[in-house]
Design a protein around this nucleic acid. Structure first.
Lengths: 145, 145
DNA sequence: CTCTTACGGTAGCAACATGCAACCAAACAG
DNA sequence: CTGTTTGGTTGCATGTTGCTACCGTAAGAG
């Protein structure tokens, strides 16, 4: 048996998160959900993903409590749970990193705007408990036994 | 030809980011790099990943400018570039989400601490350009043609 | 100088995951 | 009743992952 390595027993929260949303499609599905997609067809058109893959990913996201199905007329829709909504900073972080490093200068890309003033968001900052801004070098991991 | 779908031509920065670091191992390698791993063996012991996989992932991260190899004695080491360091908010976001949603209450997990006061970091917040805190519902994506 | 060990990989499979296309049932549309 | 859209499932070919074995180099042990 050579199944994909799972990280759901790891003590590192990053590993557990990656275990759930670390595949190619899940975070893009969540992104589309933030952007208003609710129906199977919405996701499929937006992503261009094969239907069996989408089906499996939606099921996995529902199983993991990130999406839930709600009845909508005769069909049902997929909507973010609180757990799914909480992925917003993850998606924003990926978006801002992509904007900064994955496009050539001047290359057009979609933007995430504040509805109120139609301006891009402020870049994410990591702060210590006392409010100081910190970089990776200012932090350390305390491992747990 | 049924290769893995690539997102490197997408106009969405999230998709481009996922294209680079959206597999199971890459972000964990980056996490370990933040945590001080530099040698092939460091990563291998920490992750328990097969050597061929690690080799391929390190090569991919180097190709994508996230890690670079620097000579160190007879061998070389892998260190984060500026582009790699910029993934810090992504890793922090995943970590905080994992802490909040991927552990049972009371279940122990590793923690990321500020070196200065040994306290956990403040949860990430998404802010608009004017400093207002925003949620997903306060934002919208402007697509580009 | 020779033997052993650790390091940093590569090579060869077997099993699993992905992607395409075909198919199918339930709702609508007419 | 018939055609079309929606929301999937199933089969199959290929790609990717993971395990294990192997290999070349360098550093110590004797």
């Amino acid at each position: 048996m050579v199944k994909r390595t799972r990280f759901d027993g790891e003590s590192c929260p990053v590993a557990r998160s990656v275990d759930v949303v670390g595949d190619w499609w899940s975070l893009l599905i969540v992104r589309d959900a933030f952007d208003g997609s609710r129906r199977f067809g919405d996701f499929q058109r937006s992503l261009g993903v094969a239907k069996n893959i989408l089906s499996a990913r939606l099921r996995s996201l529902v199983d993991n409590g990130i999406l839930e199905t709600v009845p909508a007329g005769a069909r049902h829709e997929y909507v973010l749970t609180a757990k799914g909504e909480a992925l917003f900073p993850v998606v924003v972080a990926l978006r801002q990193w992509g904007e900064a490093f994955a496009f050539d200068p001047g290359e057009p890309h979609s933007q995430l705007l504040d509805r109120r003033d139609q301006q891009p968001l402020r870049p994410l900052e990591v702060h210590a408990a006392d409010g100081r801004m910190v970089t990776a070098a200012d932090t350390e991991v305390r491992k747990v036994d």
